[in-house]
C-alpha cells in the first residue's frame, strides 16, 4: 500500500481500542509517519468532561520529548524541512459548546450558559449532544482540510475514547440526528453522520494488543462500528507484540550446559536456572500471542499492522522512531497477509 496511500486514504483517522492497549502511542506514531512523508498531522485528544486529565494529556507530548500537557490550543510537537509537522490539541465538550455558540451568533450567552451548568441540562436531555459537538468540531477541521485552507492539517488523527465508550461516542450523532427535533444540533449531527459514513473523509484504525480480552473486544467493537455506525475500518494495529525469538526447542538444563561448554564457557546452576525460567516465560508468551494474532486474523478480516513491544524504560522519542519504522514497514509490506 505504501505510507502515503495509508496516510491519505481519509482525512480523519479515528484511533480506538480497549483501555490500555496504546491508543495514544499509536496516534503519535501515525502522526510521526505523516511527518516523515511531508504531511501536516493534527492529533486531537478527547478530554474527559469537565476535568483536565493530566496523565493522558502529557503522554503524547512525552513521546515527542516534550513535557507539557495538551490543552485546547494546538501545540507544535515536531516539524521537518519537507514541510511535515505534528501538532496536537485536546477538545472538551464544554469548550466545544462555547465555540459552537460563538459560531452560531450566541456569543453573549455562551459563557453564562456553560458556567450555569446548562451543558449538564442539555446533555441530560440529549445525551449524545456533547459527542456531537466534539465530532462537529473535528468535522469543521476536516472541512478546512478538504478546502485546502493554508493552515489546515492534511491528516487529523483522533485519539478517541476507549472501545466501549468509543462505540457510543460514534453512535451519538446517529441518535441525535434521529431524536433532536430540528434545531442546529440536529443539522450538526446529520453533517457528522455524513462525515462518518464517507470513507474518503473518515476511517477507523483499531488498536489491540495480542492478548485474549483485547482481541475479543476489538472484534466486538469492529462489528458494532460496522453495523451501527457504518464508518469504514481501515486496519487493526496489533500493538506491543513481543519480537519472536528463535528459542531452542528443548530447555533442558543439561543440554544447555553442554551447549555452553561447546561454546567454550560454563554456566552456573543459577545462570542455567535464569535462562531456562526466562525462556519458558518467553516461549509461553510468544505462543499465546501468536495464537491471538491468528484468532484476530480469522475473526476480523482487516489488514494487521504489527508494532513491537518496547523493552526500554519508557516511551520517548527513540521508541517513537522505532515504532514508526515498524508502522512504515507494516503499511509498505504485504499488509493483507495475515499470519
Amino acid at each position: 500500500m505504501g505510507p502515503l496511500t495509508f496516510l491519505t486514504q481519509a482525512r480523519v483517522l479515528i484511533v480506538t481500542g480497549k483501555g490500555g492497549v496504546g491508543k495514544t502511542t499509536v496516534s503519535g506514531v501515525v502522526a510521526n509517519l505523516a511527518v516523515r512523508n511531508g504531511l501536516r498531522a493534527m492529533v486531537v485528544q478527547i478530554g474527559a468532561p469537565g476535568a483536565r486529565h493530566e496523565p493522558e494529556a502529557a503522554q503524547l507530548s512525552r513521546l515527542y520529548g516534550q513535557e507539557e500537557a495538551l490543552g485546547y490550543e494546538a501545540v507544535l510537537l515536531d516539524a521537518n524541512e519537507e514541510g511535515g509537522e505534528v501538532a496536537a490539541r485536546a477538545l472538551w465538550p464544554d469548550t466545544a459548546l462555547v465555540e459552537y455558540l460563538h459560531r452560531h451568533g450566541m456569543r453573549r450567552l455562551s459563557r453564562r450558559l456553560v458556567s450555569s451548568g446548562a451543558l449538564d441540562v442539555v446533555a441530560t436531555a440529549v445525551p449524545g449532544m456533547p459527542d456531537v459537538l466534539l465530532l462537529g468540531k473535528v468535522k469543521q477541521m476536516e472541512r478546512a482540510a478538504a478546502a485546502g485552507q493554508p493552515d489546515a492539517a492534511d491528516l487529523i488523527v483522533l485519539d478517541a475514547p476507549a472501545a466501549g465508550h468509543a462505540v457510543r461516542f460514534l453512535q451519538s450523532p446517529h441518535g441525535v440526528a434521529d431524536a433532536a427535533g430540528g434545531g442546529p444540533v440536529r443539522q450538526q449531527a446529520e453533517e457528522v453522520v455524513e462525515m462518518l459514513s464517507d470513507p474518503s473523509r473518515c476511517q477507523v484504525l483499531l488498536v489491540t494488543t495480542p492478548e485474549e480480552t483485547p482481541v475479543s473486544e476489538t472484534v466486538e467493537t469492529a462489528n458494532l462500528i460496522e453495523s451501527t455506525v457504518g464508518t469504514k475500518l481501515c486496519a487493526v494495529v496489533v500493538n506491543a507484540r513481543l519480537p519472536v525469538l528463535d528459542l531452542p526447542a528443548s530447555l533442558r538444563p543439561a543440554e544447555l550446559a553442554r551447549a555452553a561448554v561447546a561454546a567454550g564457557t560454563k554456566l552456573s546452576a543459577a545462570e542455567l536456572e535464569s535462562l531456562v525460567a526466562a525462556g519458558r516465560v518467553r516461549s509461553q508468551r510468544q505462543e499465546a500471542q501468536a495464537a491471538q494474532v491468528a484468532r484476530l486474523a480469522s475473526e476480523l478480516p482487516l489488514p494487521q499492522l504489527e508494532l513491537p513491544f518496547c523493552f526500554g524504560s519508557e516511551l520517548g522519542p527513540d521508541e517513537l522512531e522505532l515504532l514508526t519504522d515498524a508502522l512504515e514497514a507494516a503499511v509498505t509490506g504485504p499488509a493483507e497477509v495475515a499470519r
Binding site: 528459542l247 531452542p248 544447555l256 561454546a263 554456566l267 545462570e271 535464569s274 535462562l275 525460567a277 526466562a278
Partner: peptide, 27 residues
C-alpha cells in the same frame, strides 16, 4: 532473573543459546 556475567553472554553470542541470552536481557 539473575543476570549472566558479560563474558559468558559474549561467549554465547552466535551460538544456539544466543536467543535465550537475548531473552534474558530483554526480560
Amino acid at each position: 532473573y539473575a543476570a549472566l556475567p558479560s563474558a559468558t553472554a559474549d561467549a554465547l553470542a552466535g551460538t544456539r543459546l544466543s536467543p535465550l541470552v537475548v531473552n534474558l536481557e530483554q526480560l
